[in-house]
Write a protein that binds this DNA or RNA. Structure first.
Lengths: 204, 204
DNA sequence: ACCTGAACACCGTTCAAGT
DNA sequence: ACCTGAACACCGTTCAAGT
C-alpha cells in the first residue's frame, strides 16, 4: 500500500516490495505464490477500508443505505488510486467481497426484489462503482492525493473545448456537462438512476 | 492486435511489436512517443470495430438502438479480451470515442432527455459496458476465443458452491444467479434497467 | 520455514551515430 | 525520416543451496 500510495499503479512490483522489506526478491515467494496473489491481497485490503456497516443498519431506507455505501466505496478507492486498476483485472473473490455481496443482496431483498433480481442488482452496483472510478482514475497519474475535482473538471473542459461544433454538435453543446463526468455529482446521478431502475423491479 | 489476440493482455509490448515488424525495439519511437500511445492506438482500433451506425438509424426506437449498440460493443470487446484492460486504464479521447459519444447523446436527446441528462446518460452507458466487460474478462486468461459462456458459468458455480450458508445465507441461496453475472442475459438485464432509469428522465 | 546467490528471459527508454 | 548499437535501470520467476 505504501508503494502504491507513493508511486502510483506501476510502483507495485515483487522486487519493490522485497526491497521495502529489506529482503531479496525471491524471498517473497515464501509468502505469496505469484505477483497476482500480491495484487489480490491489495484489493482485499482496500475493499475492507469501506465500511460495510453502512449497508447493515436498518434505520435508514434501502436507497440511502446503498447510495451511502457506493459513495463511501468510491471515496476509499480514490484514496488509493494506484490500486484501482487491480480491481478491474483481478477477480473479486476475497472474503470482504463475499461479505459486501451478501449485504448488497440482503439490502435489495429487504427492498422487495426477488432473490434473483437482488443478486443481479448487487452486481450491477459493483460494476457501476468500479467502472466509473476506474475511468475517473485513468485520467490521473494514479498518485494520491488526486487533484481537486474542480481542477480535474477544468482540465477536462479545456481538453474538450476544441471539439468542432459542425461535426459534433451535441458534444460541443454539452462540453460543460461532459467535463463533469468524473465528479461526485455525476456519480450520484448514476447511482440514483440505478436505484430508480431497481425500485421499479420491487414487488410490494 | 495480432500479439494481443494470440498471447493475451501481457503480449503487447514495445519490444514484441518491434520483433513482429523485424526491427529493433527503439525503432518504434519514430512512430510512437510512448508505450501508452501504442495502447491508445489499440483502444481506438477496437472501438472502431463496433458499428456506430447502430445508433444512427432512426427506424428503430431509441431503446433498441442503444441496447443494440451496447450489445455489439460488448461482442467486439469479447473478441479482443486482451485489449479490454487498456480501455480501463487509458483515457478514451480518440476520434471514434468522440463519434460514439456524439451519437449516444443525440440518441438520448431524441428520446426526450435534456442535453445535460443526455450527456450524463451517455457516460453512464459507457461506464456500464466497459465496466461489466472488464470484470467479465478479468476471470479469463484474456486469450480469444474465450470459453463458451455456459462453461464459464459452470466454473463460477463450482467456485461459488463452497459458500457457507450460515454466514452468507443470501449468497448461498442465489449461487445459481451469481454464476450468471458474466453472461449476456445479465448484461442485457443491466442495460434494460439503465434504459428504464433514462426513460424516467425524459420530458415528453 | 525462511532466506540467499545466481541466473534466465524479459521489460521501456535514451542517446549517439549512421544512412 | 528512419533505423541501429549500446547501454541503463528495471521486471517476474526458478533452482539449488544454506540455516
Amino acid at each position: 500500500m505504501g508503494l502504491l500510495d507513493e508511486g502510483g499503479p506501476t510502483a507495485l512490483s515483487v522486487r519493490a516490495v522485497a526491497g521495502r522489506l529489506g529482503v531479496r526478491p525471491n524471498a517473497l515467494y515464501t509468502y505469496v505464490s505469484d505477483r497476482q496473489a500480491l495484487e489480490r491481497a491489495v484489493v482485499e485490503r482496500v475493499l475492507a477500508e469501506a465500511d460495510v456497516a453502512l449497508l447493515a443498519g436498518p434505520a435508514r431506507s434501502w436507497r440511502s443505505r446503498l447510495s451511502a455505501y457506493a459513495i463511501a466505496l468510491r471515496v476509499v478507492l480514490l484514496k488509493h488510486p494506484g490500486a484501482v486498476p487491480l480491481f478491474m483485472t483481478a477477480p473479486m473473490d476475497g472474503p470482504t467481497a463475499l461479505l459486501v455481496g451478501e449485504q448488497l443482496i440482503a439490502t435489495l431483498v429487504s427492498a422487495g426484489l426477488s432473490p434473483a433480481d437482488a443478486s443481479r442488482g448487487a452486481y450491477l452496483l459493483i460494476v457501476q462503482v468500479l467502472g466509473s472510478v476506474a475511468l475517473e482514475v485513468a485520467e490521473t497519474d494514479g498518485r494520491p492525493p488526486l487533484l481537486p475535482e474542480s481542477e480535474r473538471v477544468a482540465l477536462r473542459r479545456e481538453a474538450l473545448s476544441g471539439v468542432p461544433a459542425e461535426a459534433f454538435p451535441w458534444t460541443a453543446a454539452t462540453v460543460d456537462t461532459a467535463a463533469t463526468w468524473i465528479t461526485t455529482t455525476q456519480f450520484v446521478w448514476q447511482v440514483e438512476l440505478l436505484l430508480d431502475g431497481l425500485a421499479q423491479r420491487t414487488n410490494p
